[in-house]
Structure formats: C-alpha cells, structure tokens
C-alpha cells in the first residue's frame, strides 16, 4: 500500500498551511537569487547609470506592476469570500497588466540595445536583471493563466483556494523583487 501524498496532512499543520510554508521557503530562497543580482550591480558598476535610460518608461512599468498586485490581491480576496465573478475579472485584469508590463520591458530592451547593448558593463547588468525578472513575470503569467482556466471550469471556492493563493503570492513576490530592482537600475545615485 502506497502512501498518498494527500494523506499526510494529519500532523500539526493542515495541507494548506504546509503548502503555504513550502511556498514561503521557496520565496526566501529566490530572495537570495535577487540579492546576488543586486549586489552584482553595485560590485561591477557602483552607482553608475547611463543618461540614456528611459526614465518615463521605467516609472510607467513600475506603476503597471504595482497595479497588477492590487488586482491579484482582489482576485484572491474575492474567491476567499466566494465571489467567483470578481475573482475571474480581477485575475484576467492581473494577466492583462502582466502582459502590459512585459510589453513595456520589450520596448525598454529595444532602446537599450541601441544605447547600452548587453556586451557593455551596464548593459550586462541591465539585461540580466530585467531579463531574469521578466522570466519570473512570464512564469507567473503562466501559472495565473492555468489558475484562470481552472477557475473557468469551476475549480476553487471559498474554502479551497490554495491554487489561487499560491499563484497570487508568487505574483506579489515578483512585484516585491521589482520594487528593489527598479531603483537599483533607474534611480540610485
């Protein structure tokens, strides 16, 4: 007789609390990755920054990502209170805002390729940091899309919404990472 993974929840924590802890541990781990990225920026480039960086675009995509965090929060809150419609709408809004952010980064890259391509000092850091962050955004979008599809097929309810919670927590984490990356690349002097 094999042990079913779900059967393990009867200890001190519920399966949900266990999953939650696992996700937080994963995010803690990821924090170290971003810490490595950010410290590399200061190690290699100090506080230097090219004047050609598009400040308006940087501020814009930051706002978009912050806004997407709100809609993600709303989606999770809605499903936790049983509001399916609000959940679906807000999730869709989050995905749309996430895509907008990706488009913003792509526009930023087009300009950056001209002014400070990846084989320059600042370019190495800029493309790596934004690229790795964008990779996290894309994987977050993938998960949010899966959750959205499952939601449309009737999954998740007020009492059982771990999938939503996990996806949204990850999304917020991507936002937190950007909160630090944005000034590191655009603002510090």
């Amino acid at each position: 007789m094999a042990v079913q993974p779900e059967a393990l929840a009867r200890h001190r924590l519920s399966r949900m609390a266990l999953n939650r802890m696992g996700l937080w541990l994963f995010l803690l781990s990821e924090t170290f990755f971003f810490a490595a990225l950010i410290s590399s920026r200061y190690y290699l480039q100090g506080l230097a920054r090219p004047e050609t960086l598009n400040q308006a675009l940087g501020l814009g995509i930051t706002m978009v990502l912050l806004l997407s965090s709100l809609s993600a929060y709303r989606a999770e809150t809605c499903i936790a209170h049983g509001d399916r419609k609000g959940f679906q709408q807000n999730l869709l809004a989050t995905i749309a805002l996430g895509l907008l952010f990706v488009v913003g980064v792509a526009m930023e890259w087009r300009e950056a390729f001209v002014h400070f391509p990846p084989n320059t000092g600042f370019g190495s850091i800029f493309f790596t940091m934004t690229g790795i962050h964008a990779f996290h955004v894309l994987s977050g979008l993938l998960v949010l899309t899966l959750v959205y599809m499952l939601g449309r097929r009737g999954h998740f309810s007020a009492g059982s919404s771990w999938g939503v919670e996990g996806a949204v927590k990850y999304w917020h984490f991507v936002d937190v990472a950007w909160v630090f990356i944005y000034p590191t690349l655009y603002l510090v002097t």
Binding site: S40, L44, P117, P118, N119, G121, F122, G123, S124, T128
Partner: peptide, 17 residues
C-alpha cells in the same frame, strides 16, 4: 550568459571584473 548571450560580466575590457 557571457558565453552564449554576449554579456560581459567578466570581460575586463568592457568593465567586467
């Protein structure tokens, strides 16, 4: 990335270290 994506983290002539 330095090998395949053309960055220069470790190319001293480009500000790498």
């Amino acid at each position: 990335l330095d090998r395949v994506a053309g960055t220069s983290f470790y190319d001293a002539t480009q500000g790498g270290n």
